[in-house]
Design a binder for these strands. Structure first.
Length: 654
DNA sequence: ATACGATTTTTTTTT
DNA sequence: AAAATCGTAT
């Protein structure tokens, strides 16, 4: 039996043991919302709710895993039966079962962002659009539009008219591209991330028997990070909770930072209106930060108008005022941060209790170089994700061919790796392969050879050598072994010739191989990859026991939900934080301020706001730049006075 | 006609 | 730094 009273505070206890029904939990930063959710889940199970009738939607798969393993510690392994994961992975789970209802095969594959962008790019060319002299939007921008339209449920033409005025002259062509893109997706039997939500919702809307099944199944629905859900997700929740009406959503409107991908702030603000009889609970006790840090965060966020009123109270006492440090430029900033990190380590704070946060990935470049120079170990948690790196995608493309010989995207990727084969010839080869009844055999045939120009023959020979090994291995070996053999069978050499860091790329692939052991089949392994962000080692145990402590470098977005003793926020300059581009979006300033708030509330003990006065402008001398408005608006009178929530350091090295 | 290396442009955040 | 574009070699 769990002693809820001693393990939870009163606010949390009320939430955990609340009567069933719709409820909204406004949970401030560091108020123990994860704790409340895990204990709530445990409590429901103890009350006799079958675990497989509980749905727990989280923001990342990692969050779901770690919550459920905590529930498991509380109530035993039945916790594993709880349906937990991101909306995308839950959608995938449902859609695999019902894909046929939507005109898809159950073995559809999931495209990551890069795949999707390339398919859009191909759609532009197929539609015969002249992109030469005009400034037709680039494929990544097109993808952004299509994706945002899907996630907001706004028709693409309306969305372009509203948010992309410069693209309006090309609207007809954009719609053509979007149409082709959709067509190609279903021809290829692939889904993009958005489809996992949109088609899930469509399934529930259009097939009442399926809706009934799931609505009756899930007695309790719990949702984490509700402030970052979009309208599709809100729809899905409405449909799923329509029978039992037991839905608990947890979130903090002050931490809504994903509107760029369609997250709709009004989901959380309007929850009480949409769910009649909804109760509102607030978690306002902050266990994480010292009062001076919380004070700064509170003073900043009050500048946002549209929000639930809440007052975060610090449990902790004492603490030092945050520091605002003005530095000459990005190099000085890097120097300052590195120097402070060293001093902080000397004071006894472990390296992995320190993080450096920034708005955009490239803001961390100078710092990375400085940390390398000084030999300070760090890990970068932004930038290209593990599964999006070229070599990882190459390897999975090989595996996909072995599993599904008609995987067009995988074939084209693999073909392009070989000399003399570019986009056009890869296309030609694919056409021939697709016309055969077994591409895996046809690729070795004389017929194929004869259908192709001389220039591809050497490349074709190399291709065949590798495929021979791949197919033979896939028949008999375990997935991890297949990967090893592809490397040994020629891909390693390829890496050597194309990149200068063959070793580390091979290591990545070995890591991939090791990871594949967690799956029963190659099939299952491949279908889950796209939904995974990284091969995070932090399965709690391994992190603490084996890993060398490292400073964490992260975008603010990726830092959500995490905490460190010491947090540096770099590039707190107007234009970078808030980011100039983001200010042009509707509601941009408020969202940027929420980002600032999220970043500040990650800090437990110390917070440094760094502002490089000269904007580093690609090698040359940049122009001077104001400190972030989020800092300026905190200043009342003189920054040196006790009235401001931070003290000001002016670092002058020379 | 195609591939591929050199050059120029543009760079937010992510399941 | 990566992607789109341009120019040259095959």
């Amino acid at each position: 039996m769990i002693d809820y009273k001693s393990e939870l505070n009163n606010e949390q206890l009320r939430v955990v043991t609340a009567e069933a029904g719709p409820m909204l939990i406004i949970a401030g930063a560091g108020s123990g919302k994860t704790r409340a959710l895990t204990y709530r889940t445990a409590w429901l199970i103890e009350q006799g709710v079958p675990p497989d009738r509980i749905l727990l939607a989280t923001f990342t798969n990692k969050a779901a895993r770690s919550m459920l393993s905590r529930v498991e510690r509380l109530v035993g392994e039945q916790a594993r039966l709880v349906w937990g994961g991101t909306f995308h992975s839950l959608g995938n789970r449902v859609l695999r079962r019902h894909a046929r209802r939507l005109g898809y095969e159950g073995n559809y594959s999931i495209m990551d962002r890069e795949d999707a962008r390339q398919l859009v790019s191909a759609a532009v060319m197929e539609a015969g659009i002249t992109t030469k002299s005009e400034k037709f939007p680039r494929s990544d921008r097109l993808m952004e539009m299509i994706s945002l339209a899907a996630n907001t449920s706004i028709p693409l033409d309306v969305l372009v008219g509203d948010r992309y005025p410069s693209a309006v002259p090309f609207l007809t062509d954009i719609l053509k591209v979007a149409f082709r893109y959709r067509l190609r997706k279903s021809e290829l039997n692939v889904m993009d991330f958005d489809d996992l939500l949109v088609k899930w919702r469509d399934l529930l809307v259009e097939h009442s028997d399926v809706r009934e099944e799931y609505a009756r199944k899930f007695e309790h629905i719990l949702v984490d990070e509700y402030q970052d859900t979009n309208v599709i997700q809100a729809n899905i929740l409405e449909l799923l909770s329509s029978f039992h009406r037991n839905i608990m959503v947890v979130g903090d409107d002050s931490q809504s930072i994903y509107s760029f991908r369609g997250a709709d702030y009004s989901n959380i603000l309007g929850f009480p209106d949409r769910y009649e009889g909804a109760r509102i609970f607030k978690l306002e006790t902050n266990y994480r930060s010292t009062p001076p840090i919380l004070n700064l965060a509170n003073l900043s966020i009050v500048n946002n108008r549209r929000q639930y009123r809440k007052q975060l109270r610090a449990v902790r006492q004492g603490g030092v005022r945050p520091v605002y440090a003005a530095l000459a430029d990005a190099l000085e900033q890097a120097d300052f941060v590195a120097q402070r990190i060293i001093e902080i380590v000397e004071e006894g704070v472990p390296l992995n209790e320190t993080a450096v946060l920034y708005r955009a990935h490239h803001h961390s470049m100078e710092l990375q170089m400085e940390l390398v120079r000084r030999g300070i170990p760090f890990v970068v948690r932004s930038g290209i994700r593990f599964f999006e790196q070229a070599h990882v995608k190459d390897m999975t493309a090989f595996l996909r061919i072995a599993v599904n010989p008609f995987d067009e995207l995988a074939w084209k990727r693999v073909l392009g790796l070989f000399g003399g084969i570019g986009r056009v010839r890869a296309n030609a080869i694919w056409k021939l392969l697709a016309g055969s009844d077994d591409p895996r055999r046809f690729v070795f045939s004389r017929e194929l050879e004869e259908g192709l120009t001389k220039a591809v023959q050497p490349g074709l020979r190399d291709l065949r050598d590798m495929l021979r090994i791949l197919f033979e291995s896939a028949e008999t070996d375990q997935p991890w072994n297949v990967i090893e053999r592809v490397i040994a069978g020629g891909y390693g050499t390829f890496l050597q010739s194309r990149y200068d860091n063959r070793r580390s790329r091979e290591d990545d692939l070995r890591q991939l191989a090791a990871f594949s052991r967690n799956f029963d089949s190659l099939d299952e392994f491949l279908s889950d990859l796209a939904l995974m962000a990284s091969l995070d080692e932090d399965d709690e145990v391994s992190l603490k026991e084996r890993k060398e402590p490292k400073v964490v470098l992260s975008t603010i977005h990726q830092a959500k939900g995490l905490e460190w003793s010491v947090v540096f926020m770099i590039r707190c300059s107007e234009g970078a934080m808030p980011l100039a581009r983001a200010l042009r979006e509707p509601g941009g300033v408020d969202e940027e301020r929420r980002l600032f708030y999220v970043a500040a509330t990650r800090a437990k003990d110390r917070l440094y706001l760094c502002h490089p006065v000269i904007e580093g402008n690609r090698g040359g001398w940049g122009r001077p730049c104001e400190p972030s408005r989020f800092i300026r608006e905190l200043i009342h009178g003189n920054a040196a006075e006790a009235g401001t929530p931070f003290e000001q350091w002016v670092i002058d090295r020379d």
